[in-house]
Design a protein around this nucleic acid. Structure first.
Length: 122
DNA sequence: TTCCTGACTCCAG
DNA sequence: CCTGGAGCCAGGA
């Protein structure tokens, strides 16, 4: 029993609803101008999760309402590894800059200062 | 069912 | 400092 969800998103229909729900919910809580990484989300959400799963969830975040600020999730080095999964390869950076986050060479500038740790902030 | 792949991370060399 | 391999969990072929 994990289907029959009232959603049009196929990813949400055939997967553990909690997982996506939790990831999306947490990502939405990332403050504007801050960023976090996949591992931190995985760790915060629970023990069994791996960072790959978080990226996998982000892959399903398109077309979700309310929108997911997926641009605020980068890898542990602050690099925009997921940029190619956006509508355009430059969209992720553009969204971050709109958030007031400078990006240089696919990396978040001053990543350690911008870093937002859910375990500490929540 | 087995095998491959992935928006990641850690550890060894 | 950089590279490579293993671990990770779920989904698709």
């Amino acid at each position: 029993m994990k289907k029959n969800l009232p959603t049009k998103n196929p990813a949400l229909q055939s997967s553990p609803r909690n997982f996506f729900e939790d990831v999306f919910d947490l990502v939405r809580q990332i403050p504007k101008g801050r960023v976090t990484n996949y591992g931190a989300i995985a760790k915060y959400l629970g023990s069994g999760l791996s960072s790959r799963m978080v990226g996998w969830a982000m892959n399903a975040s398109h077309g979700v309402d309310p929108p997911i600020p997926a641009q605020r999730v980068v890898n542990r080095n602050g690099m925009l590894t997921g940029k190619h999964h956006f509508h355009t390869p430059t969209l992720m950076q553009e969204l971050l800059e709109k958030d007031g986050v400078a990006v240089l060479n696919d990396k978040v500038v001053e990543f350690t200062q911008r870093y937002w740790d859910p375990e500490k902030e929540l």
